[in-house]
C-alpha cells in the first residue's frame, strides 16, 4: 500500500475499489527543488499535493517582509493553500520546499468533480477537513494554554526528526519565538 493509500485508510470512510482508483487517478508525481514554491501569495491556486518525501513550510509574509511559519510539512501529509482552494479567493499563504521534495500533485477542481460521482470521496474530504480544523484549533489552544517550553516538547513529539533536517530559525518561527529563545530552551533541556 502506498503512503497515500495509508493516509486515506485512517479515516472512517469505506471507498469502493472504483472510487479509490478514481481518486488515486487524479494524482501525478512531481518533484520540487529546494527553496522553490508549491504555492504563492497573490495567485489563484488550483492544485494540492501529498508529500512523499522532503520537508516544506507554509508561511505568511507581512507587508514589511517579515515571515511567519504557519506549518511544517513532512511526508505523509497533504500540502496546499487549502483556504484559497476551497474559497476560490486569492491565496495569502506561501508554501516552499525546504529540502528537495517528491509530491503527488492533483488538481482541486478534479477532486470536486469526483464528489458528484462518489459520495464516499466527498465524505472522506469532509473527514480530512475536520481533522485540519481540529489541528488548527489545537495549535491555537497550545498558544493560549501552554508555555513555550511545553510547546517545544509537543513539537518534538509530533516531528521527532525535523530538527535535523531544517534550520533552527524555521522551527523558532513555527513556535512563534525568536531563534535566541529557542536555543535557550534547547540549552536548558541538555
Amino acid at each position: 500500500m502506498t503512503a497515500l493509500q495509508k493516509f486515506i485508510k485512517q479515516f472512517p470512510v469505506v471507498l469502493s475499489d472504483e472510487a479509490l482508483a478514481a481518486l488515486l487517478g487524479i494524482f501525478r508525481p512531481a518533484s520540487l527543488e529546494q527553496y522553490t514554491y508549491f504555492a504563492m501569495e497573490g495567485r489563484i491556486e488550483t492544485s494540492f499535493g501529498f508529500v512523499e518525501s522532503g520537508v516544506l513550510r507554509a508561511f505568511y509574509r507581512t507587508t514589511r517582509g517579515k515571515e511567519y511559519n504557519r506549518a511544517l510539512l513532512e511526508p505523509g501529509e497533504f500540502v496546499g493553500a487549502y483556504s484559497a482552494l476551497i474559497s476560490g479567493q486569492v491565496n495569502h499563504i506561501n508554501i516552499q520546499a525546504l529540502t528537495p521534495c517528491n509530491i503527488l500533485v492533483a488538481d482541486y477542481r478534479q477532486l470536486t468533480v469526483l464528489f458528484d460521482q462518489y459520495q464516499a470521496i466527498e465524505r472522506l474530504v469532509r473527514h480530512i477537513s475536520e481533522s485540519y480544523y481540529l489541528f488548527l484549533e489545537n495549535k491555537e489552544l497550545q498558544i493560549i494554554l501552554h508555555t513555550v517550553e511545553e510547546r517545544y516538547e509537543f513539537f518534538k513529539q509530533a516531528h521527532p526528526t525535523l530538527e535535523n533536517l531544517i534550520p533552527q530559525y524555521h522551527i523558532a518561527s513555527y513556535l512563534g519565538i525568536t531563534p535566541t529563545q529557542l536555543s535557550r530552551i534547547r540549552a536548558k533541556k541538555l
Binding site: S83, Y133, L136, K139, E140
Partner: peptide
C-alpha cells in the same frame, strides 16, 4: 469553519 479558524489565527 476551517477557513474561519485559520483566518482568525492569522
Amino acid at each position: 469553519s476551517f477557513i474561519q479558524i485559520a483566518q482568525r489565527a492569522a
